[in-house]
Simulated scan of single mutants.
Amino acid sequence: MGPAVLVVDDAATVRLYYRQILGGMGCAVEEAWNGAEGLEKALVRPPQLILLDVNMPVLDGYSTLRALRREPSLCAIPTIMITTEAGGGQAERAYAAGANLYLQKPVRPERLTNFTRVLLGMQPA
């Protein structure tokens, strides 16, 4: 199986969308519906890439990302924050929390696959 990717988003339809795109690339996709669950899953089985929503119940994306960056076993995992939030310094806030990339929803499949390939060091399709 290919690289492990953890998708953390409270919307089941969004997780399915990413699962279809990443699965089509050969990635093994794990899902979590909030930041706390995402942290737990990452600690048990560290992924090679994390896709992280900002607005979620229990633990939001910024808090989740800061916690990931403090954890020695998880701090170097590339993380893409993907959100509907625009403007108001959201991208800067994401990068300050430790994001490798900040994207706005909806993300076109080709953009997601291109960025995923770059962050995972995969060959172009």
Rank of each mutant, 00 (worst) to 15 (best):
P47H: 02
L112H: 02
C27I: 11
I80H: 06
T113R: 13
A32E: 03
V107Q: 01
D53L: 01
I50K: 03
L112P: 00
P106C: 06
A125M: 10
A32F: 04
G2D: 09
R111M: 13
T84L: 09
Y95V: 13
M1C: 09
D9I: 07
R66M: 04
I21W: 11
L39W: 04
E40P: 02
M56K: 01
M81W: 14
M1A: 11
L43H: 07
A36T: 11
Q48D: 12
V14F: 10
V44Q: 07
E30G: 09
A76N: 14
D9R: 07
N100Q: 10
V58K: 09
I82H: 04
D10V: 09
G87H: 12
G23V: 12
K105Q: 00
S73H: 14
Y95A: 07
A96Y: 15
A99K: 02
V7Q: 08
L68G: 05
E40H: 07
P106R: 03
N114F: 14
L119D: 03
A97D: 15
A42M: 02
I50W: 06
N55W: 09
P46A: 00
T13Q: 11
A91D: 05
I21M: 10
P124A: 00
G2Y: 10
A76P: 08
G89A: 01
N34E: 09
L43Y: 05
E40K: 07
L103R: 03
G87F: 14
E110W: 00
V7R: 07
G26D: 07
G24P: 08
D53S: 05
V107N: 02
L103I: 01
G24Y: 12
N55C: 07
A4D: 14
W33H: 11
G24C: 11
E37S: 05
A36L: 15
E40W: 06
M56I: 05
L65G: 03
G121W: 10
F115H: 14
R45C: 05
K105C: 02
E92D: 12
M1Q: 11
L112S: 00
A11N: 15
G98H: 10
R93D: 10
Y18L: 06
M81R: 10
I82S: 04
G89W: 09
P72V: 07
P72S: 04
P78T: 13
L101D: 00
G88S: 02
K41C: 08
A86P: 01
N100G: 11
P78Q: 08
Q104I: 12
R111T: 14
V58N: 04
A76M: 13
M122F: 12
P72A: 02
G88Y: 06
V29P: 03
F115G: 06
G2R: 11
N34D: 13
N100R: 08
A4Y: 15
